[in-house]
Structure formats: C-alpha cells, structure tokens
C-alpha cells in the first residue's frame, strides 16, 4: 500500500515506522514499518499482512481512498554504517521492514548477504528487490515450495560458520528472531532485531510497548524498535503480545466473513 505523506517521506530513515488509524473516533492505532519511501513524490510504502479487523479494512481500500490519520516517522532509525559483512534475515512479512535496512546497509558499502524465509512460495515477498541488493540471496520455505526447504536458522548457522558476518540483522516473527539470536549467540556475532510489540500512542506515553532488554525496561516506540537480540527477553515479549488475543480473534472471526462477502460483492 502506497500513501501520500510528504513530511514523513522526507524525514523517514530505515527502521522507522508509522501509526495509522482508519477512523478518528473508533479506529485502532496500527503500527506499520515504512517499507519504502519516495521523498520527491511524497509517498511512503507500507506492506502489511491482514491479521485483524483494521488490517482487513485496510486491505479492501481502493486506490484514491484516504486514511484518516497517519503519524510518523516513529522510532529510532537503524544505525547504519560500514560494518563490513552484514547478513540480513527476513521472516515472513518481516522481509518488508528489512528492505530499507538492507538498502541502507548496501549503500553504506557493506558486503551484504540476505536470507528470506516464508511458510510457502506464495508468502515469499520482495525476492527480486532483495536479490538486486545482495551479493547472495538465500530463499527458504517451510514446505520447500520455493528455494530451500528449511527454517531461516539453518542457512544462518552455516553462514555464521563459513562467512563469519560482522553483523546480523533479523526481522520477522518474534519466535524467528528469538531463534536467530540463539543461533548467533555462540558465535558472538552482534545481532540486531526489530520488535513489534503492542502499541497505543507510539510516542512514549502509555508504556504498552515495554520490553525487557538486558534486565531493563525499554519502550519499543521511543527506545527501539531495534535492539540487541542477545539481550531481549523474547519469551516475555511473546507472552505480552497475546494480552488481547482472545478479543482480536473474536473480531477477526466476524469481520473476516463480512469482508469476504464485501470482496465477493465488489468482484
């Protein structure tokens, strides 16, 4: 989804996100990473997965429609410099936020390899774009329908042994980031992860996004979203992500039906 947001397009740096809202009175505030931006056209691109009520409603928007509220860019930009060898690992939709980071790393003159993983070939995204940036791209799927049949942690481990990256950047579902961090830990390779916790304001006011990093409480929206993966308490983060799950699933259930009907109607 590409939307017009000239100020955000101009200010944003890799690693940052926006918060969208579809309705000022009743809408939910949804954080999404900025996957790409065009400062000249004044547009930003967001790639999202339809999981709950709001993302479903976003998915059925037609070109030319508008989104009531967009706030951003939020969060600390990725720290980009010439590290030497950088290995980027994207899992599922997490490949989208990884894209601008990989772009930045390539531009800064790093040697770059990229691993992208997804459940099956339909869910592999940005393969060409990533291929164009990287010296080597490894695609893997859980079912082997595209590229290698493996979890991303397999090639990650191999490259840690053979290529010895100076930095690993892993973005994807929490469980994937957790295992990526566990994979690199014995090698002592610094591993950056990007967290997507529950958020409300995104400006450091509510504390809903808090995570434990190295024993300290951090707020993802102002201190993050990127942290040292070896210090993040992933188990607690995953637990807290589930706080509102029962209710979301309820919503999703009805809404999914409604929207399917709507989509059929429009087709």
């Amino acid at each position: 989804m590409t939307i017009e947001a000239p100020l955000i397009a101009k200010e944003r740096r890799p690693g940052q996100f926006v918060i969208l809202q579809l309705d000022t009175d009743y809408g939910e505030r949804v954080p999404l990473t900025i996957a790409d931006a065009d400062a000249e056209k004044g547009t930003i691109t967001l790639i999202f997965q339809t999981v709950g009520n709001s993302t479903h409603r976003m998915a059925v928007k037609e070109p030319g429609e508008s989104i009531e509220n967009v706030l951003g860019p939020l969060g600390q930009p990725t720290h980009i410099e010439k590290f030497g060898r950088v290995l980027c690992v994207g899992g599922g939709i997490g490949t989208a936020p990884l894209h601008p980071i990989a772009q930045g790393m390539a531009r800064a003159g790093n040697e770059l390899k990229i691993i992208i993983g997804a459940r099956n070939k339909e869910l592999v995204i940005l393969e060409q774009e990533m291929g164009a940036l990287a010296d080597e791209l490894i695609v893997c799927t859980d079912d082997g329908s595209r590229g290698r049949k493996a979890l991303v942690t397999e090639p990650l481990k191999e490259l840690c042994e053979s290529w010895k990256p100076d930095l690993v950047v892993a973005v994807g579902p929490p469980i994937m980031m957790k295992f990526c961090a566990e994979t690199t830990r014995p090698f002592g390779i610094k591993t950056m992860v990007s967290l997507n916790t529950i958020m409300v304001d995104g400006t450091g006011m509510c504390g809903g996004c808090r995570v434990t990093v190295g024993g300290e409480t951090k707020f993802v929206c102002v201190d993050g979203p990127e942290f040292d993966g070896h210090l993040v308490d992933f188990d607690n983060m995953m637990l807290r992500l589930g706080t509102y799950r029962a209710r979301e699933e309820d919503d999703h259930h009805t809404c999914h039906l409604d929207l399917q009907l709507e989509e059929e109607h429009n087709a």
């Binding site: 409300v200 304001d201 006011m205 504390g207 808090r210 308490d233 637990l239 807290r240």
Partner: peptide
C-alpha cells in the same frame, strides 16, 4: 511484566 499489568496511562488512553 506478566499479562494483566499495565500503566494507568495505557488503561485510560484505551
């Protein structure tokens, strides 16, 4: 950090 602990700011903002 258990599920069910939150700040008043978050609760009231919601």
């Amino acid at each position: 950090n258990l599920v069910g602990v939150l700040s008043a700011n978050e609760y009231l903002t919601r």
